[in-house]
Design a protein around this nucleic acid. Structure first.
Lengths: 143, 143
DNA sequence: GTATATAGTTGTATAATACAAATATATAGT
DNA sequence: ACTATATATTTGTATTATACAACTATATAC
């Protein structure tokens, strides 16, 4: 029997699962700030990638259109986004962030940033830098 | 007004949120193998850290005891774990993995490993190594 | 002009979770 | 020993995020 070499992907697989569990536990109820997981990323996307419709957002996040429809309706109801009818297509519209939505997003981002910065307090700058890079890189292939 | 320096924690915060979203989308329905997110980690924990009771598991994963109670009941019902009554305490018991549970865990781990290894196919070994290390390191502080 | 495709909404079902109530057992104070 | 309180677990119930299916309104193709 040959020795099994411990491949980094084994570690990554397990640590990703653990990270998810922790993150889920940390965000399922006690949401940081006032935006839930989906609202935060939705607002971020609408804010930084320009207005988009329900369908495009659903594709971006790999969620069902109906799910996004409800989530955006909720954001609209809270006054964080508003709809612009698509002049070319009467069925479609796109979403734009409001001032209040932008403020809410910024304050959430700040709270989350502080939380992470606090966790990473004792990390060498180099490791923080590298972790950010590798996470981004991983997300790009994990589409 | 001073320029805002882009701190790595800002990137990490956002990329973590994105990672969660992708991971959730990828595992919510289409579970890899036959074990759902919680079952996979529960079996892993029971298997590698020795038998433990519902309460200890709930603490480990920061989930409500009632949630773990149901999840372990489901694992028991599938024959993946069995209960050993605590000889010192008639209310408590601990969980042990069964042969079939261990087999299920191993095959799931393998499937997940392959999925991750495939994603990382084009990464330099060094980056894979570092990503695993940093994830582990982050999980240790993100308790 | 009719058939089909598409953007979005709404109805309904499921799964994972938390919190509260209940049960059984253990521990502490007297 | 007796009663009160604390603890380990289960079960009842509500909520939330999700998917899938049915529906509505509009657009496109033949």
């Amino acid at each position: 029997m040959s020795e099994k070499i411990d491949h980094p992907a084994e570690t990554i697989e397990l640590e990703l699962a653990i990270l998810m569990r922790r993150f889920l536990a940390a965000t399922t109820n006690k949401k940081i700030g006032t935006l839930d997981r989906s609202a935060y990323l939705l607002l971020h996307q609408i804010s930084s990638n320009g207005s988009s419709g329900v369908k495009a957002l659903a594709e971006e996040f790999q969620l069902d259109i109906s799910t996004i429809s409800r989530q955006t309706a909720s954001l609209e109801q809270k006054g964080y986004v508003y709809r612009i009818p698509d002049p070319q297509d009467g069925r479609a519209y796109s979403l734009q962030i409001t001032e209040s939505g932008a403020a809410e997003l910024a304050s959430n981002k700040q709270a989350r940033y502080e939380r992470v910065a606090e966790l990473l307090r004792d990390w060498p700058a180099e490791d923080q830098q590298k972790f950010g890079e590798l996470l981004s890189k991983f997300n790009r292939i994990f589409a």
